[in-house]
Amino acid sequence: MIHCDNEFRRYHSNLPSLSFDSVFEDDERSGNTPLPHDVCNSCLCLLNIAFLRRHYFQLRQRNLASLCSACSQAVYFVSILKQVNKAIADKPTNEYMVTRDGKNDLKIGIVGFGRLGKQLAVILLDLGVIKPSDLYISTRCPEGLEKFQNEGICCCFDNALVCKTADVLFLCCLPSQLNTVAKDMQGLLSDTIVYSFVSGVSQARIRQLLKCGNVIQTTLLFKSNCDPIFEESTPWKFGRDVRESLADPKCIVETSPLCQKSLLEMDYQLIESYVHALMNKCIRKDVKEKEKSISICMSVLLGESSSTSEFKDILLDIMKKKTDIKEPPNVTRVQTSSHHDSIRDRIMENEAFRNAFTEQYVKVVQLCSNLESWNRFPIE
């Protein structure tokens, strides 16, 4: 029975007639079918069907926006880590070392290869953010990833191997699988940045399960008033995929975690985690002075904005009485924050920082989305 089911899905998975929306008309697929205002009781059933169809398409748009936001933020984060590597490598060797192990390429791991994990891998490869040889995937069914393996990507069912190898580990597993996955990884994540997309599990809980302090957790919460964005003219058109959406600058802006016009609630904790991750990257590459680490981080996050030097001074002020960052352990919120004064609080108060961050965020993602390697890895 299992064999027959797998064979059926393999041969019929791409047939349009079997998709859920195959019975809808073209105008209904656009999500813009108007609902009648005045209907008699005899038409109530038709009204309910139209209502359900409309909301179905809005859910599809929201799902696309969620996937795009996750992929766009991942592309941005990996890109700025590579910029930190380059900024350090461009400095004179007598100022500080390039790296402790002599390597500059980032190794990326993905644990969990459902819809999000697969989209994430395809986008990182498609946009040229990483090379196939630098990607490691752990999934329960690696035998089904022949196309990825043929490109030189390591596909296995070995969470421990992937987390030991990766510089950045994207957690894309289900919440119900997290405890099992965490047991495989405990004690193996000393220098790895864990970037979690596991929904419904807090950053503190993930740190506890993994016994790792270097964890980034994104929330991807839609604003309560974002429905009109999907109902009016919108870049989140039905029928687009993630790659097509990220080729649209309007979509990129709406995935920014600090944009006022974004679909998402502002995620100040995410940006605070970015700052910590970049500074820890500098520590591991032997940037010994606190001010130099902060200067590199701010130039990567904010570009040449006037807010760069201003926020550098703010960070120095916050860390003035904290543990020297050149000594272990890594920089954490415990070392860089107090109840009334934290990086997150300063970002919330500083509109210039938010605007500069969003402008640089869009530039970074848009630069990747313009590469000629587009559509190299088709998604079935």
Rank of each mutant, 00 (worst) to 15 (best):
C4S: 11
C4T: 12
D5M: 12
F8A: 10
R9I: 05
S17P: 00
S19T: 15
S19Q: 13
D21M: 06
E25A: 15
E25R: 09
E28L: 06
R29H: 09
G31L: 08
C40N: 15
L46E: 13
L47D: 09
A50M: 14
A50Q: 13
A50T: 04
L52W: 14
R53M: 12
Y56V: 11
L59N: 14
R60T: 15
N63L: 07
S66E: 09
A70P: 00
C71E: 00
V75I: 14
I80Y: 00
L81M: 10
Q83V: 11
V84K: 08
N85H: 15
K86N: 05
A87E: 13
A87S: 15
I88H: 05
A89L: 15
E95T: 13
D101C: 15
K103H: 11
K103I: 02
D105F: 13
G112K: 05
I123C: 10
L124G: 04
L124M: 06
D126K: 08
G128F: 04
P132M: 10
S133G: 13
L135I: 10
E143N: 09
E146L: 14
Q149N: 10
E151Y: 00
E151T: 10
C155E: 00
C155K: 07
F157W: 12
N159T: 14
L161G: 06
V162Y: 03
C163T: 07
C163I: 02
L169T: 02
F170C: 07
N179Y: 05
T180C: 08
S190Y: 14
S196E: 01
S196R: 03
S199A: 15
R205Q: 12
I206V: 09
I206E: 04
I216S: 02
L221V: 13
F222I: 06
K223R: 14
S224F: 08
N225Q: 14
T234Y: 05
K237G: 13
K237P: 01
F238Q: 03
G239F: 07
V242L: 07
V242F: 15
E254N: 12
T255W: 02
T255I: 07
P257D: 04
K261Y: 15
S262R: 08
E265W: 02
I271Y: 01
S273T: 05
A277H: 01
A277I: 03
C282T: 03
S295P: 04
S306Q: 09
S309M: 09
E310N: 07
D313P: 02
I314S: 03
D317W: 07
D317Y: 08
M319N: 04
K320M: 04
T323Q: 12
V331T: 01
T332C: 01
T332G: 00
V334F: 05
S337Y: 00
S338A: 14
H339N: 10
H340D: 08
R344A: 09
A352T: 12
R354G: 01
R354Q: 10
N355Y: 08
F357D: 00
E359K: 11
Y361N: 00
L367C: 13
L367D: 13
C368N: 08
C368T: 06
L371V: 12
S373W: 12
R376W: 04
F377H: 05
E380Q: 10
